[in-house]
Design a protein around this nucleic acid. Structure first.
Lengths: 147, 147
DNA sequence: GTACATGCAAATTGTTTGCAAGTAT
DNA sequence: ATACTTGCAAACAATTTGCATGTAC
């Protein structure tokens, strides 16, 4: 179900922001965008890419996650289990499972949700930069396992 | 505007959860509950209480923040600037300023917000434990200062 | 008296920095 | 040719752990 993005598209994304297309950066961007709901941690990505780049440094991973994040190409999510990364998406709610760590995105682009966010920020003349809505708890599978 | 809570109430809160009322724990609970929107970090609290408890250990602060959090007496909020603590409140949206670190709570207990959360969790048969909604950006004051 | 809490120091984990060598544009 | 990127090692920050002593119940 998850078609990997064509390299040409990734190259265009980087070019658009004046970012050099090094193979590490390209692979990292692809890994985050194709993670398809896995929302990997920096360490996950480091391990995943280390197979293809044996000399890869954690510093490069962190550096590029920051660069891609600042460019608005990927999104950083703070969870009780640490920072997680994923594609940029329309406003949505993250359901974070505290047992297995899975993160599901729901109400993606929901109009009521967008209206509510607008209402929240205008209430305080707040200039929004990014939205991070999460509900922590147990996913369906883990809450069954508990019983 | 912010009346400190009577000690009797704090003692009752702890007793209700079978938690020993040590003076450090009591002071920490009071500090978090009376923070009134300041949403202090663990370090903030450590420094604040060190005045009264010169031998206070960070380990005690972290330990008690976890204990009080598990008991549902206080709330932990993950922000791009690290973990912050505050009173438990009705569902609300946190406006987190990335410049000055201030956190404002808006739409506290808003019915539309509550409805939306219900809709989000039921969508995935998710068992919610805690809700953490935040919008990162610039508060009114800091966004003026930028211009 | 017993179980839990504190304080200290050391260990861990996650992330950042300085700098020399390599690569994209 | 130049500026940006990588990789390594060391630095750093936030948080956790082990253990002996102290305190609430």
């Amino acid at each position: 179900m998850s078609s990997a993005r064509p390299a040409s598209e990734l190259l265009a994304m980087l070019a658009e922001h004046g970012l050099a297309a090094t193979s590490q950066r390209l692979a990292l961007l692809a890994a985050v965008l194709d993670a398809h709901g896995r929302h990997p941690s920096a360490e996950d990505l480091y391990r995943e890419l280390s197979a293809r780049f044996p000399t890869l440094s954690r510093a490069t991973v962190y550096n590029n996650l920051a660069v891609l994040g600042n460019a608005g190409l990927i999104e950083k999510l703070e969870t009780p289990e640490g920072s997680r990364f994923g594609p940029v998406a329309a406003p949505h709610v993250n359901l974070v499972c505290n047992a297995c760590g899975a993160i599901a995105d729901v109400l993606v682009g929901d109009p009521d949700l967008e209206a509510l966010i607008r209402r929240a920020t205008s209430a305080g003349s707040f200039t929004p930069r990014s939205v991070s809505l999460s509900v922590n708890g147990l996913c369906a599978a883990c809450s069954q396992a508990q019983a």
